[in-house]
């Protein structure tokens, strides 16, 4: 870790001004991933601009259309436990609480959660080639120990997985990311925020240099009656997902009116397949139908030496989680499989 100048920015223009000055300047909010990466010398910064004290975006507010605006600087724990989130978007609440640990959730911000970097072993080891860390150096994971790596949307240059749980729920909920930059404000649909690796795996998302996430909007439909988040991992808590699933179902007269299924732990971004959700519409919420949807979602999966289990695991996890969504009370702490 190198030393850096530390600057507290109280408003956006000040923040933009500092990060513009040098491309080695970085914003810091919760810092839970950035400081980790800096200590490993994987991220370097000549200055850190502390944006925790920017005016605004520290609250959760109701939107006129019935949705909710999550300030980017609200901590993950405060978001998960916010009464409006618990009541209207329990899927988001459950997903957040399945991630990291209580201490980290008390520190990490909503904006920062979207910007976490992969936990690929090779990305984290500066002495191995990694296209995400050093474009053009090669991918060590493709022929390496790839148990934790992606099976969907991979490329020749990267098979890393995006590690967030919160984002899996945000993807399922059709959230919108609000961004500020020197050129003004813009919004990105959640599905357009994160990128697939393609041949530019160094880019995790579509945030431009110098831009700041200011808030995340979730539309009104929260699937608060039938939802579930399931996370499968190598221990019951405080570990990243091998496969996770967020499901929201809207039922009417015993049939599925609307369905959302997003996967974590399988791709470079939360994975959603519209065809699968469309398939479920007007169908009975049965294990058979969910299994068919799972087949559609996993279509085209590409496996590597040590992660072929993820395909079957993901399919079964989808079915289980959709069944759990029919009975959300069956969910257990830590998003473990229901009894």
């Amino acid at each position: 870790m190198n030393n850096f100048s530390y600057i507290k920015a109280n408003d956006l223009p000040t923040a933009f001004g500092h990060v513009r000055l040098g491309d080695a300047a970085k914003y810091i909010a919760g810092g839970t991933n950035l400081i980790d990466l800096m200590k490993y010398n994987l991220t370097k910064a000549s200055s850190l601009v502390d944006i925790n004290h920017l005016v605004g975006n520290h609250d959760i507010e109701e939107l006129p259309d019935g949705g909710l605006r999550l300030g980017a600087f609200v901590r993950n724990a405060a978001t998960a436990y916010h009464p409006l989130v618990e009541e209207r978007y329990p899927l988001l609440s459950r997903a957040i609480l399945a991630g990291a640990s209580a201490q980290i959730r008390n520190m990490a911000t909503n904006g920062g959660n979207l910007l976490q970097r992969t936990r690929c072993y090779y990305f984290y080891d500066a002495n191995t080639p990694c296209n995400k860390r050093e474009p053009g150096s090669g991918c060590s994971a493709i022929l390496g120990y790839n148990r934790i790596m992606a099976i969907l949307g991979t490329s020749e240059s990267c098979i890393a997985v995006f590690p967030s749980d919160m984002c899996v729920a945000l993807a399922a909920l059709d959230a919108v990311v609000n961004i500020s930059g020197e050129d003004g404000e813009r919004s990105l649909a959640f599905a357009d925020f994160h990128r697939l690796p393609g041949d530019t795996p160094e880019l995790d998302n579509n945030l431009k240099p110098g831009e700041i996430i200011t808030s995340i909007d979730i539309p009104q439909k929260g699937f608060a009656r039938n939802y579930s988040y399931l996370k499968l991992r190598d221990r019951n808590s405080y570990a990243f997902a091998l496969v996770s699933v967020a499901t929201g179902l809207e039922l009417e007269n015993g049939l599925i009116k609307d369905a959302r299924i997003a996967l974590g732990g399988v791709a470079h971004k939360p994975w959603r397949v519209k065809e699968a959700e469309d398939f479920l519409k007007e169908k009975e919420p049965s294990a058979e139908n969910f299994a068919q949807a799972a087949e559609i979602i996993l279509f085209g999966a590409k496996v590597f030496e040590y992660n072929s289990f993820k395909v079957e695991l993901a399919k079964r996890a989808i079915v289980r989680n959709c069944m759990m969504a029919l009975n959300p009370e069956s969910q257990l702490p830590g998003a473990q499989p229901s009894a």
């Binding site: 530390y6 810092g31 839970t32 490993y40 850190l48 980290i104 008390n106």
Partner: peptide, 23 residues
């Protein structure tokens, strides 16, 4: 020193946090 064990937990303004992951 990387937010993976909890040994550095302190209470900051009423909340438990990891002191290794903050400046």
């Amino acid at each position: 020193d990387h937010g993976q064990c909890g040994a550095c937990t302190v209470i900051c303004d009423g909340d438990r946090i990891l002191s290794c992951l903050t400046l």
